[in-house]
Amino acid sequence: MKTLSRYGLMAMTLLKINIQRGLEYPAHLIGWLISNPLQFIFGLITIKVVISNFQALGGWSFEQTVFLYGLGIISHGLSVVLFIQTWYMGFLITEGELDRMLVRPLNVFFQFCFFDFNFIGLTDMLPGIIIFTYGCMAASFQFTLANTLNLLLALVGATALRGGLYTIIGALSFWIQRSRQLIGVQWKLFDYSAKYPMNIYPPIVQGIFTFLLPIGFICFYPASQLLYANAGFALPGNLCLWTFAVGIGFYMLGMMVFKIGLRWYESCGS
């Protein structure tokens, strides 16, 4: 209990420090405030243009796709805020930052998550919320109690799932010195999986994205349940609850891989 409150206090302090750091560079902040939303607006334009020229993708209308897209951006923004440092893990290792973390009397994983709390991610959240709100209205999503609860479960799950996958990929830098580009791969994967309904892919790919690398849960499955849209595979049970479970599971897996990696680092150095 005592350690828990200690870590809670630490997290608050680090939060404060990191906001202060961000405010040191107002020009950057404004830059990101323009560039990040721009990226999502362009994504939206792509979907609009294609659906209006062709047809609903995999049976998903433009409105439903916007809902899906918005949901994806929100969990992306949250994961950027919370887990961005996993993207730099290779850098932290080569620059000796990890050594520094090892000589501090705090849990190393905690330090990884909180010493570089990134509130730039909020510049993703803003357009995400706007796009999602529009999607909710356009796709006439009902904010009933059950729906709202499911939505929250899905968001927490999706964020944890992203965090877990980021952590796994990031922890690969313990073994592979330049895993940075792997993060690029993952980024592209997430980007596409979030943007388009997953049932446009052949069943084998859907299978991989469901059972092996479950990025379908990031927004496709929860959105398909919340909107009663075509989900490709007929998975049993509450898909939002599944998202939550898969997310937490992957997050734990990520922590485990990180721990193993750290042990490897302690025995091999960089």
Partner: peptide, 11 residues
């Protein structure tokens, strides 16, 4: 550091 300006151009 033109920061995200380069990103904007790329998008």
């Amino acid at each position: 550091d033109i920061g995200p300006l380069g990103e904007i151009k790329n998008y």
